[in-house]
Simulated scan of single mutants.
Amino acid sequence: MGETAARTLRADAERSVRAVLEAAERVLAADPGASMEQIAAAAGVARTTVHRRFANRQSLIEALALSAARQLAQAVDDGRPDTAPPLVAMHRITANVLQVKGAWAFALELPAGPGSEAAALQQDIDGRCVDVLRRAQADGLIDGAADLEWVRRVYYALIGESLRGGSGGAGPDALAARIIDTLLHGAGPHA
């Protein structure tokens, strides 16, 4: 088989896997007990295609969690957490994360197995979040005595609540602005 034909087959296989993972997110979000056959039907692929790519339901679930974790890590990277001014980075990252979490809510709620790549990615994301918060603290945006691990947990809770509570028609940028404003200023009057 020529190099072009092999690339075409790889691209087709990647598209099939992506279609299966996207379908798995939709189907499992609606029915966590859905079968591999239901996922295959929703993806528009043969059941054998799903079984050829994923040995069993658990391997599909693990692949789904890993794919979502990778997308979340990319959303953080795209916000330029190390180089953008802290407030800009926080806003970009928040808007990006809202989009990924909105699209992959089921997969991102799956527990990452200890020692898994998804767990390592989540740990890295947590650390990078604290690093951005530390930069914001150095710029005087966050009180110097604040416990940044606590601030990170509050930040994550604000993101989670904004997704669970509905956006009220607000897009990711407006929600990100609301989350960052609440994180930095609370609910009290602005001075």
Rank of each mutant, 00 (worst) to 15 (best):
M36P: 02
D126F: 09
L98T: 01
F106L: 01
D139L: 06
A157V: 04
A95K: 08
S67P: 00
A40L: 09
V132P: 09
V88T: 14
Y156M: 07
A136C: 08
A170Y: 05
L121A: 09
G2V: 11
I179R: 04
P86S: 02
Q58C: 03
L175C: 05
R18H: 12
A43V: 07
D139F: 09
G44Y: 00
P86E: 04
L158F: 11
V27I: 11
P114L: 07
Q137K: 06
A46K: 12
L133T: 10
D181R: 12
G144F: 06
Q58N: 08
A24N: 11
R53A: 15
R26F: 07
G115L: 01
P86Y: 01
A29T: 07
A136V: 10
G171E: 12
E149I: 00
A73H: 05
A145D: 14
R80K: 09
A41D: 14
G2E: 13
I142M: 01
A19K: 11
M36W: 02
N56G: 11
I159F: 10
L141D: 02
L133D: 10
V27D: 05
A34H: 11
M90V: 07
A68I: 07
T182Q: 15
D143H: 14
R7N: 08
A19W: 00
A95P: 11
R26L: 11
G188A: 13
A65T: 10
M90S: 13
R153V: 04
P111M: 01
R26N: 06
A118W: 00
S67K: 05
A29H: 12
G171A: 07
M36L: 15
R178V: 07
A174W: 02
G140T: 05
V130M: 02
L28G: 13
L66P: 01
H51N: 13
H51V: 12
I93S: 08
R53N: 15
L21G: 10
A55W: 03
A89N: 06
D147M: 04
S67G: 07
E109V: 00
E3K: 07
F54M: 02
Q74S: 13
P81S: 01
A41N: 09
K101R: 15
A177W: 14
